[in-house]
């Protein structure tokens, strides 16, 4: 069993709905103080995993311990120490911004004066104090999301779960959310983040897993994963001729294609670029740093889901 710094430990974790296997025997562990990402396309099993962690969904098989406690046996004790920012906004539309927090504090048994103080701190932290008396329907999507995160922090949780925290937000709101998450990370909060945005995972996570169809494909720090699985750089060629693809394969390059682009993953983009320019001078090429997106597409394929 993991040491005291192990916040979550999952072994052979499995969840079936009838014939459909949402989570298919995964193992992972999250250490105190890290921001751990679960990255995957829709239907990968991210949210199902999260629901099992916060004891809302019973396991089909396997073991899952949070703070060393069994999720099936001690849900109350576990949930008292977790904060969940769920994918869907489920704020109380009949209450003001402030009241949403103080009412939520009651569910954790926080005494009223302390709860008010805490709510104030959180609203200030999230930049919502000026809006404290507003009704929920008057808030934009970004503000609602920040309020849901503030609400998830009301019990000063030892584990903060952010389930797709920026899905559907405009770029500015996303950055505001990221900013706060980074601050929380600096303060040493243990964070579990699910997302299908590569840039989000790359900028926020210390370590991540990529999930697809209920399984974990790879695990590690994002930069290391990209480096070891994809390479340092990517050469992209638009509107490539079939001859180039043949040439690339014959040359033993690590190559991928989509509808109208050819990608070559490499340690040195410049060498590849020159090789291409030499034989196919008219092609439009560019070199860039390899990123999570390349790894993700390489692992999960390029076909459209759903």
């Amino acid at each position: 069993m993991g040491g005291p710094s192990q916040v979550i430990e999952a072994r052979e974790l499995r969840k079936r709905y009838g014939d459909f296997t949402a989570v298919d025997g995964i193992d992972f562990a999250i250490q105190a103080g890290e921001c751990f990402g679960v990255l995957g396309p829709n239907g990968a099993g991210k949210t199902t995993t999260v629901k099992m962690i916060h004891c809302a969904s019973p396991l089909t098989s396997g073991t899952l311990r949070v703070f060393g406690l069994d999720v099936g046996r001690e849900p109350r004790r576990i949930k008292a120490r977790i904060g969940v920012c769920s994918q869907e906004d489920n704020l109380d539309p009949d209450f003001s911004v402030l009241k949403n927090l103080t009412v939520f504090a009651r569910y954790f048994g926080l005494p009223a004066p302390g709860a008010l103080e805490r709510a104030r701190e959180l609203l200030e932290f999230m930049g919502l104090w000026e809006r404290r008396d507003d009704r929920i329907r008057d808030l934009s999507g970004g503000l609602k999301r920040r309020l849901v995160i503030a609400r998830a922090l009301i019990n000063d949780p030892d584990l903060l779960i952010l389930d797709e925290p920026t899905t559907g937000l405009d770029p500015q709101s996303r950055h505001q959310v990221w900013d706060r998450v980074r601050t929380l990370r600096r303060q040493g909060k243990t964070i579990l983040l699910t997302t299908h945005y590569m840039d989000e995972a790359q900028t926020l996570c210390d370590r991540l897993v990529i999930m697809d169809r209920g399984r974990i494909l790879v695990e590690g720090p994002p930069a290391e994963l990209v480096r070891s699985r994809v390479g340092r750089e990517v050469v992209e060629v638009w509107g490539y001729p079939p001859a180039l693809l043949d040439h690339a394969r014959l040359s033993g390059w690590n190559v991928e294609i989509d509808a109208d682009r050819l990608f070559v993953y490499t340690e040195s983009g410049e060498d590849i670029l020159q090789a291409i320019a030499h034989r196919f001078p008219s092609e439009r090429c560019t070199v860039r740093m390899a990123g999570l997106e390349d790894l993700f597409l390489k692992l999960t394929g390029r076909e459209l889901r759903e």
Binding site: H54, A56, P75, R76, R77, K79, A80, I82, G83, V84, S86, E88, D89, N90, L91, D92, P93, F104, Y107, F108, G109, R151, A152, N155
Partner: peptide, 14 residues
């Protein structure tokens, strides 16, 4: 519609 219970089950409430 409001998903109120989804929020409540993330607290120590059963």
């Amino acid at each position: 519609y409001q998903k109120t219970f989804d929020a409540l089950v993330t607290t120590p409430l059963t």
